[in-house]
Nucleic acid binder design. Structure first.
Lengths: 223, 223
DNA sequence: GCTTGATTCAAACGGTCGTATGATTGAAAC
DNA sequence: GTTTCAATCATACGACCGTTTGAATCAAGC
């Protein structure tokens, strides 16, 4: 067993760390990574400024921690649903696979307090400048890709390259959908509600399934 | 006629303005708006720092100028192609409408020197924090929406609300596609080339047309 | 040649940034 | 009670931020 005073220290640390992560998540979601200062974060978290560089080593690593903290349970949920789909013996449909892939993100807003803003965070992570995603993608997405890739390829009967173009387009739709909906509000004159997550997920799956099938068809016809 | 020294002045101004806009466009595209400083811009443009606040009133307005400078000719090209489609007497297909809508953005990289980075700029404009898009959308997109909206509704036989969800998803795919392709490179293990604009546009149109049709079908079946 | 007025310039403004430092705290270990 | 050490703290560092200022520049008007 590790020394007790270390355990105590870790407990105290986790309180401060948690507060920082929570505040950072909210602020990053609302204003983006570059536009959110550590002072603003520590101020809202009611912790000392130096705590960020103590618990995380830099702002950069704080960003990664914030993103991964949210992404990790979502990815586990994705794999869990995929596992269920694949134990049935019958091949999952594209719609089922997309539900396993997109669903957990839309579910997650109900999973806890004050996570309503976090979809924007993921949306930002996909679009923010810098090498953030380049560094984050392997850690955050490799397993997902390894499991969902073959499943989609079987369901669509499409080759790897064409599928990846499709996934790329699908992720773009998802990120934009989650990014808050200034565009959607403008397009619809305020009629469409970007916070209608059920409607958004339903449409995203239907739209994406059809789009992926179209890419697969083309592949099959042309190739 | 305006006074000659004003004309001369305007000409000199346009040189500096142009250099600022060019440098800003490139840097904004690469690093985002918040992460790009005016000092970096004026340094690369080889103009004085104060020139930005002289010719544009603030960094904020510089951003708007950079975006609108690129968006404007693209929107005019969009409407030009749409006009051609609609003079034929036959209703344009969804694919033709999407080509009119997406095509000019993909064309534009060939239209001049060093515009290769600008798609990333538009991608950023769609996703950057702040009220940028909220302020920019009406000026940049109202006419496009007024012309393309009815055309899509006729082609798809879909109601306004469902179409706007579809356009929202489509714009997300487009923005992600144009944003540089770190995700695509990762997904495909480097095999897919995000700079293959022809392939990207072809897939985007096929994918989007199918997705929009699916939303329209649902609408017709359910409603 | 002097005036005019738009543009350019160096310099500085007050502020905020991410990070580092060294003292202080406080609970466990002995 | 002293030692130990993770954690917290106030504070400061140097750098960079967007913006402002007032003088210098320079071509055109008279």
């Amino acid at each position: 067993m590790i020394e007790a005073h270390q355990e105590q220290a870790l407990h105290a640390a986790s309180q401060t760390k948690q507060r920082i992560l929570d505040a950072a998540e909210r602020l990053f979601s609302q204003h983006g990574f570059a536009a959110t200062s550590l002072r603003r974060i520590t101020s809202e978290a009611q912790v000392n400024l130096a705590a960020v560089n103590y618990h995380f080593r830099s702002k950069e690593e704080l960003i990664q921690a914030v993103v991964l903290r949210k992404l990790d349970p979502i990815n586990r949920r994705r794999l869990e649903i995929l596992d269920q789909l694949e134990t049935g013996g019958v091949e999952p449909t594209i719609e089922e696979l997309l539900h396993a892939f997109f669903g957990p993100i839309f579910e997650a807003r109900r999973a806890g307090v004050q996570v309503c803003e976090f979809p924007k965070l993921l949306a930002r992570a996909h679009t923010e400048p810098g090498d953030l995603m380049t560094r984050l993608l392997p850690a955050a997405f490799s397993e997902i890709l390894a499991r969902f890739g073959p499943a989609f390829r079987r369901a669509l009967k499409v080759d790897q390259l064409e599928l990846m173009w499709g996934m790329h387009l699908a992720i773009g739709s998802m990120a934009h959908l989650l990014s808050g909906g200034a565009v959607l509000a403008f397009l619809s004159g305020g009629e469409a509600d970007a916070n209608d997550y059920d409607g958004a997920l339903r449409r995203l799956i239907r739209y994406t399934a059809s789009g992926l099938r179209a890419l697969a068809e083309k592949e099959n016809v042309a190739g």
